[in-house]
Amino acid sequence: MEKALVIKELTKSYGSLIAVDNLNITVEKGEIFGLLGHNGAGKTTSIECILGVKKADHGSALIFGKDPCKDRRRTFEKVGVQFQQSNYQDKIRVDEICQVTASLYKKPADWESLINTFDLTEMKRKMVAELSGGERQRLSVLLALIPNPELVFLDELTTGLDAKARRTVWKYLEGLKQQGLTIMLTSHFMDEVYTLCDRICILKKGNTIFQGFVSEAIANSPYDNLEDAYLWYSGEEEHKDENL
């Protein structure tokens, strides 16, 4: 079966700093894959190199068998992307940015119903610049779903959302997963990762520390929950011990 995403030996450095070192990931269709790591571990750089926004020094990334750099138009017809920081045109309204986004695809999702799902109905005619942090975050996830994607990249999908909004987003994504959507996400919240992800990859200073199922991550650590296991993998535990 065709893989949703195949990343091979992806390497990217900024000057002498190696941001991502030999990253290898295969994501199956219908899977939710989590890319974890502290700030600066290389998550965002990895996603940017996979999408072709940044040029990798070495290695390759294929999305549904296509190279996003060489075959941009066809690749992104069925791929949605939410960047960690989203910027919009000055003085553009919520409904306008949705219309524009929908117009870029051959078969877009119904953005009006997405707006209801993400609880932004009352904000429809407001300027994007006037939205609160949480509303903007919901909008950025919503826009990533407008393509009616088969694969969606979500970089820190629920940062800034309140508990209720997070649940809503999770539930909606799980529903889409049932319909076959593949998701590649990054997150700092282990409850979120535990709820959503099938498999994870933990990065530390660009290196892959762990890759596998969430249950394996916990089982291979001395702990019984993902948060402690994650901190153990990513090296925070050592600091704790040293401080004692």
């Binding site: 072709g52 017809e77 992307v81 910027n87 045109q89 870029l104």
Partner: peptide, 15 residues
Amino acid sequence: YRHKKILRRFLVTPV
């Protein structure tokens, strides 16, 4: 648009 990274958002679409 380039400075505000709005073009970057367009880059990951078919436009």
